[in-house]
Design a protein around this nucleic acid. Structure first.
Length: 712
DNA sequence: GCAAGGTC
């Protein structure tokens, strides 16, 4: 009897194989691995997918609108994912026509669909009829064995809602994106890559709202009143921000020149528990805070560390560290590094981690495996150590913060001040990224009178809300349920790629704002979280069998048709506005030679960006842009053009590569050398300007300017 | 080309 167990990914196939058949043989197929176990007359194959092996594509790519979709192998649709082919081939050649199948992918909608598509497309005609579902919530030995011994039926509600999720995202996102691009193309004959989607558009909308709030913000002046006393004590008037100037005057009048009476001195001790172990979002936020690494970079570093076996699975939302990960073993491994050992020796037994609230059915929080890395890159090392120290901290003792809060009465006005110091360092000593406060507590007694050096009113301004950065945007998306732990960083990078947003402190470009304004008018739903909510509800109904996927898809199709019709009707206006906004965002300064603007342009011929004048072809001013160059806000001191940053390590220079160089170096090409074919350039010599070959001194061809003009 | 979701 042949038995096949289909797993979602290589890592889980290994765990499942080892749990069910400790003696199973690990075998290789091309670059992939699977497990084989022979027992009496039963042979079992445990074999992995790599996430989705199949993806949707339009049946007919020439369709105006894409509603007719079919499943196609991922590598066929996405050339960057050729590695998936080996996994498909492995299943195709090893897992066909078995006597029974186990669907052992993650127990969620996507996992169910991953396994379903494998069974449907790769395992032979009858495979799905011979399929049982393993249901487990953790990849622990006990859970896996239980799931194998008590399999359930495949839940077709789950399958259908998975299919519906893919279809809905595709027909909304792709069709609306295409219609936006089409309106630009047809009204301006220009191509700009544009996109909209259930997750990226609401994310962009959050940023636009913030952008508008910042723009519309009117700073208001306010005052805070401070009392300066001895021992560097600065006490704050408890009224906080005062917006009326005359009130400030009257308060100053009340308390100026008077002594302070200490009304109250409170000393408190507060326990500060260690920070929770990392889930992916937490790691991304902390790596951004401490090292300035982008969430996408952190994610790919974590993925590498995981593949090398140094850390656990990083795509987790859990902040829990269950005993089953075997604390002792991990610490034993880590202790081989003296720097880690130094911290680990401070841990008190029994080992018990302080955990966070968030859970993940499939994986524990990110933690080191105990296997020490041999050689790591600069950033990899930083992220790895961050994970290790965070892990050690979770097992460390709480810290105790001692605080002093004092209330002073100065001429009837109450002033407050507080001081903090760490009374017991606990985990703070273990986590090198933690600031340890150590303020001195002045000796103050209740009822005592102390002199006041000065009372001052400081004028300040209310500040606009802060801009998001990548890390804080990920947190916001997490809070609103937009995207998943594994997609958020990628979605933000799409917003950058499309030039909807720019900068570390994220600013929205005119194009980004225009996309949102346009979609708000024609398809408000896609700009808010509403579409995600609606999907969630409908998918739940499909799952419970309360409605069918076909009904839901049909409804969505009608909705999209009416949206696209509206866009189509107004395509002239939409397209022109989008293009104009796109151009506006590309302006980087004034042209030094004419009245035009300098724009970032793209050459299809050289497949690279450059800077050129908006009055082209009348004005032919161009500047090259090195690959990966960024145009800075600051200007060149010599010529006023913007500065650029480029190369590795990053260096700064004027946009004009000839800026600051003498005229001699600025070679103006006037034609081809008749002698050697090299460029002819204008040069200046002792007797004025002349034309010479660029190949000098190899080629010594020269001519006078008049001669060249004469002969053309 | 266009989405969002899995994963090496």
């Amino acid at each position: 009897m042949d038995e096949v167990i289909i797993c979602e990914k290589p890592r889980s196939s290994e765990k499942i194989a080892k749990a069910l058949f400790p003696n199973a043989k690990k075998k290789k197929y091309k670059k992939t691995y699977y497990w084989e176990h022979q027992e009496k007359n039963k042979k079992t194959i445990i074999i992995p997918a790599v996430g989705h092996l199949y993806t949707l594509k339009p049946k007919n790519p020439n369709d105006e609108l894409f509603f007719d979709l079919e499943w196609a192998p991922v590598p066929e649709v996405d050339k960057k994912k050729r590695y998936v082919q080996d996994y498909i081939d492995a299943i195709d050649s090893l897992a066909k026509n078995a006597d029974r199948y186990f669907h052992a992918c993650d127990y969620d909608i996507e996992g169910t669909l991953i396994g379903y598509n494998v069974l449907k497309h790769l395992c032979g005609d009858e495979a799905l009829q011979k399929t049982l579902r393993m249901k487990f919530s953790t990849l622990t030995r006990d859970d896996i064995i239980k799931a194998y011994e008590n399999p359930i039926e495949l839940d077709y509600g789950q399958v259908d809602s998975g299919i519906a999720r893919h279809v809905l995202d595709f027909i909304f996102g792709v069709n609306i994106s295409r219609s936006l691009m089409k309106s630009v193309k047809e009204s301006t004959n220009r191509f700009i890559k544009l996109s909209a989607g259930r997750v990226q558009t609401p994310a962009l909308s959050i940023l636009v709202d913030r952008e508008k709030a910042i723009r519309n913000f009117k700073p208001e002046p306010y005052w805070i009143i401070k009392a300066i006393l001895e021992d560097d004590i600065i006490a704050l008037n408890q009224r906080g921000r005062i917006f009326q100037k005359n009130k400030v005057k009257s308060i100053l009048g009340e308390c100026q020149g008077k002594d302070a009476i200490i009304e109250e001195v409170k000393i408190n001790r507060i326990n500060r528990m260690p920070p929770p172990p990392f889930n992916l979002g937490g790691l991304q936020a902390e790596a951004y805070r401490i090292f300035g690494l982008s969430p996408k970079k952190t994610q790919s570093i974590a993925q590498n560390l995981y593949l090398e076996g140094y850390i656990s699975y990083p795509r987790t939302s859990s902040q829990k560290l269950p005993k089953t990960i075997k604390y002792e073993k991990i610490f034993k491994g880590l202790s081989k590094d003296p720097r880690f050992k130094e911290k680990i020796k401070n841990l008190k037994k029994p080992l018990k981690p302080h955990e966070g609230k968030k859970e993940d059915e499939a994986h524990p929080a990110i933690h080191p495996t105990g296997l020490l890395p041999k050689k790591l890159g600069k950033h990899e090392k930083k992220v790895y150590e961050l994970i290790v120290y965070r892990f050690i901290s979770a097992f460390s003792e709480k810290a105790i913060i001692e605080s002093m809060n004092a209330k002073l009465n100065i001429g009837g006005e109450i002033f407050k001040f507080s001081r903090k110091k760490v009374a017991k360092k606990g985990w703070m000593k273990q986590y090198p990224y933690q600031k340890i406060e150590d303020e001195k507590f002045p000796l103050l007694k209740e009822g005592e009178k102390i002199p006041v050096k000065e009372i001052i009113a400081e004028e300040k301004e209310t500040k606009p809300p802060a801009r998001y950065n990548e890390a804080s945007l990920i947190k916001e998306m997490e809070k609103r349920g937009l995207g998943t732990k594994s997609t958020r960083a990628d979605i933000i990078s799409i917003l950058y790629d499309r030039k909807y947003i720019e900068g570390k402190k994220i600013r929205v470009t005119p194009l980004g704002e225009n996309i949102i304004d346009t979609l708000k008018r024609y398809c408000e739903k896609i700009t808010s979280e509403e579409l995600t909510r609606q999907f969630e509800e409908e998918l739940k109904k499909i799952m419970k069998g309360k409605t069918s996927k076909d009904k839901i898809i049909k409804k969505a199709k009608e909705e999209i048709i009416s949206i696209i019709e509206e866009i189509e009707k107004n395509k002239e206006e939409i397209g022109k506005h989008l293009y104009k906004a796109y151009q506006k965002g590309r302006i980087i300064g004034k042209c030094p030679e004419c009245e035009g603007n300098l724009l970032i342009r793209y050459s299809d011929k050289t497949k690279s960006s450059f800077v050129g004048c908006s009055r082209f072809p009348e004005c032919k001013i161009v500047y090259p842009l090195p690959k990966g160059a960024r145009i800075l806000k600051s200007k060149c001191e010599k010529c006023g053009l913007p500065l650029i940053s480029y190369g590795r390590p990053r260096q700064r220079a004027c946009l004009d590569p000839h800026c600051g160089k003498s005229k001699k170096d600025k070679m103006e090409v006037v034609g081809k050398c008749p002698k050697c074919g090299n460029d002819l350039v204008k040069r200046s010599g002792r007797y004025g300007e002349f034309i010479g070959c660029k190949g000098f001194p190899k080629c010594r061809f020269t001519a006078s300017i008049e001669e060249v003009i004469e002969k053309g």
